[in-house]
Design a binder for these strands. Sequence first.
DNA 1: CTGGGGCCGAAAATATCTTTCAGATGTGAC
DNA 2: GTCACATCTGAAAGATATTTTCGGCCCCAG
Lengths: 333, 333
Amino acid sequence: MTDDVKESFRAPAARTGGSGSGPTSGSAPAPASGSGSGSDAPPAPAALAAKVRTLAPSMTRSMQRVAEAVAGDPAGCAALTVTGLAELTGTSEATVVRTARLLGYPGYRDLRLALAGLAAQQQSGRAPSVTADIAVDDPIADVVAKLAYDEQQTLADTAAGLDTVQLGAVVAALAGARRIDIYGIGASGLVAQDLGQKLLRIGLLAHAHSDPHLAVTNAVQLRSGDVAIAITHSGSTGDVIEPLRVAFDHGATTVAITGRPDGPVTQYADHILTTSTARESELRPAAMSSRTSQLLVVDCLFTCVTQRTYETAAPALAASYEALAHRHSPRTR
Amino acid sequence: MTDDVKESFRAPAARTGGSGSGPTSGSAPAPASGSGSGSDAPPAPAALAAKVRTLAPSMTRSMQRVAEAVAGDPAGCAALTVTGLAELTGTSEATVVRTARLLGYPGYRDLRLALAGLAAQQQSGRAPSVTADIAVDDPIADVVAKLAYDEQQTLADTAAGLDTVQLGAVVAALAGARRIDIYGIGASGLVAQDLGQKLLRIGLLAHAHSDPHLAVTNAVQLRSGDVAIAITHSGSTGDVIEPLRVAFDHGATTVAITGRPDGPVTQYADHILTTSTARESELRPAAMSSRTSQLLVVDCLFTCVTQRTYETAAPALAASYEALAHRHSPRTR
DNA sequence: CTGGGGCCGAAAATATCTTTCAGATGTGAC
DNA sequence: GTCACATCTGAAAGATATTTTCGGCCCCAG
């Protein structure tokens, strides 16, 4: 109680108070209780490398050094005390602790514990996560193999880093939504459409918008009980943030699917689903892995909503199947 | 943007031998390769339960209680401080430390670290349960895990089954194409658009069509030197086959990306790229895995074409990146 | 019954982690 | 170009956790 955080953006309590159950008698000064970074991530078990990549852009230089060391050599760092790690990275203890906090742990001690776990996992079977980048002169077979591997990695990272509590909340909102709007531009626009198509198939009134103006026009119509979903890897795509803001202001439940949980888009998001960020290169643009990651999130949403509304979803799904059947020519040949 | 990827981090092992400034009780675990020279027993990695049994007879009553708790619930004990574990077992801190020593660790801290590792290993070993199909009553975490696993599987299958010769031929055709048309409907339509977007970014004149009529209208314009790509999982989507047939008849190089290499669509395809077909179920429609598979093929095409036309593709890619930069609010960090 | 040996835990001593605070650094405005 | 502001950073104080010390207690033998 005594610790009043600065509450940042959304002071108005007009929202459903449901999400933020009281923090446990906060000895733990969990910084983001309200909404900002939203999902208080459970201590990441193995999703640490992914988390480092996801959060790296929002880190300061010193913290990045620490995060890099940690991600690069979990086993080695697990053996170090906070002072040792500070010396190794040429920073101070305070910075190490700050980094640990940013990664979602109560303190360095817990980060170290997770690190030990990660090291053990890597040790037992897992190949080193370092893969060569795709080169300009790689033979085709190598390109295929590397791309497949990278995308698999992206999937694993995303799954590991996905906040199931947030996911559950979003699913609940979607299942009971009167109307669903989805915003996405460019590569994310395709993902938005994919989600829209899927939700339509199970009988939900969902629509994906790619036109920013129309999106805003539609967002104005939303109200409490509706859901608005913004999909943007960078978290700072204005054309997507704007409709979400409008939806937010009109009382809709808002969701952000983004790779930057600290980006501007999250200001207006009741729920944040974080997609993983893979390292990128010239031959492997960010759009590629972000799309893979986003699609997994979309699939999870779809599947869980279908589960939850099985009674109505199953017949709807079957009907949509049926309706398209005659579109396929009988198998000639 | 940020080019700080190189540089990475300094080697963690390079501790200067002389400066023993740290009063750390010389617990240099040195995970380095040479393991033999280490005089004292290495901290038990995972064989902790066995060690407990072995040493149990030589333990005193109190220590046995501690050892038992540790062996019985590594994860739980890893979360406890020395005081907590002492209370849990009804003993004292000193006893806990003695037990840790007896088990071969320098102190409780290290035992706890090993415990965390053990817990993580046990956790990850619990994977096989995700091979099952997704059920209506699966908890959310399971759904996420299963979906991710299935998609990973799909990727592996696709990569393994992809014909690199055909792929190379298609890449060659694309790299030199005057004009590229891509046909896809429904879920495959999004993949088609994805491919179109990507190819546009590297300066190729590509267009994805979702409207069957417009697709045919465009296909009529194609001629030798052009490329037409049809994407259809079933291989029998009439609305996609028709434009491909027209393109084929007009002399364009035609490509089919399909999960059914024996389907009608292949009649008009010069090259066939086969996508994998995963088992499907009610909660996991075919569209899901086919999309994943198709996207991998698309990514391969894109990457290989970029490689092959690097001289022109790289600047085009950079330019498209640049053009969108100002679309993102500067509010980063 | 008494003495000895070793086990055990409370509390001191030490190491480690966390927090606070003020200097350092970079950024944007004028 | 300079100033004001905000942020980052590290040193040291403050809190916890771990290790050690030391004396009491129990058990067993004589």
